[in-house]
Amino acid sequence: MKLKTIAAAGALSLLLCGPALAARDYISIVGSSTVYPFATVVAEQFGKTTGYKTPKIESTGSGGGFKLFCGGVGINHPDITNASRAIKSSEMEKCAENGVNDIVEVKIGYDGIVLAHSKSVAPLKLTRQEIFLALAKDVPDPKNPGKIIPNPYKTWNEINSNLPPTKIEVLGPPPTSGTRDAFVELAMETGADSFDVIKAMKKTDKEGYKALSQTVREDGAYVEAGENDNLIVQKLQANPAAVGIFGFSFLDQNSDVIQGSFIEDMPPTFEAIADGSYPVSRPLYFYVKKAHVDVIPGMKGYLDEFTSEKAWGEDGYLADKGLIPMPAAERKQYHENVAALKTLEMK
């Protein structure tokens, strides 16, 4: 049976290898699911307004995207990868190993991570320290600040008496998600640093510090839900006590039923994220394989479309979809970089 399978598959592969090896006439994009809703809008716009085919965009996650992107040069490898974080030096090395040397980095804007909940209750006002206390697995003992104990907090008012007496119940992304990475880094780590005990560990016990500041509690208070999922919005509506963690665009699209919590007294609004006063926000990027720019039809057009003011500008269509634009000077800088195909330097 196996022989037959292999023979049949082999015959088929021979038949099909012909067209497969011919040139690809569409752009292949992979990468972050956070950038996906923005990249797809640009791709569709590009496909509809030019004669080129609409680029194909896979939602693989930032890490998965880099893995594919750095696989090599050639039509079987993607041309562009989206990322919700900057490329790591280890990924640059991997790329270089496979002959992908010239990479153009394009920052496209910012994404705020919000804690949102139902409109039927008063907005939560949190600090990053409180977020850490609510979500970390182990926290400093409130009675004896030098001692680390398993998280004892069950309701919000146990952390701060000004907070409501409701159960801590947070729906958030799973560990594979870029949103989770960014949330842990931007909200929880900063929150952890506000305790001297933990901050001191940063120098003495790096591993211990990491485990303490980045481990999310597993006793049921934090529920791993899908990332950027319409279902979370429905759950939040049904349960006013629950809080959800997701990208700003979800809040933006559902602002009639859910509201964002204040963090450090800043509401998660478009303006607050754009000017950097809302603390939990991160830049979004895409990376272009320079060797492909002249090979794959439409690459230049796509880059132009993405970096044009009508797309990523303050009134552009990406802003309508929830992308927080960069300041004008930064946009200009990146637009020029792209036009000149300025590549990244190996660090």
């Binding site: 996906y36 809703p37 791709a43 194909k56 965009i57 896979e58 939602s59 699209q253």
Partner: peptide, 29 residues
């Protein structure tokens, strides 16, 4: 699992399938 606008015309055109489309739409803001 990809965003594909053009309706596939042959076996070698990129395409999504029904459950993937459901997943992608459920994930859209």
């Amino acid at each position: 699992v990809a965003f594909i606008v053009d309706v596939p015309g042959s076996f070698t055109d990129p395409s999504a399938v029904l459950p993937v489309q459901i997943y992608l739409w459920a994930d859209s803001p």
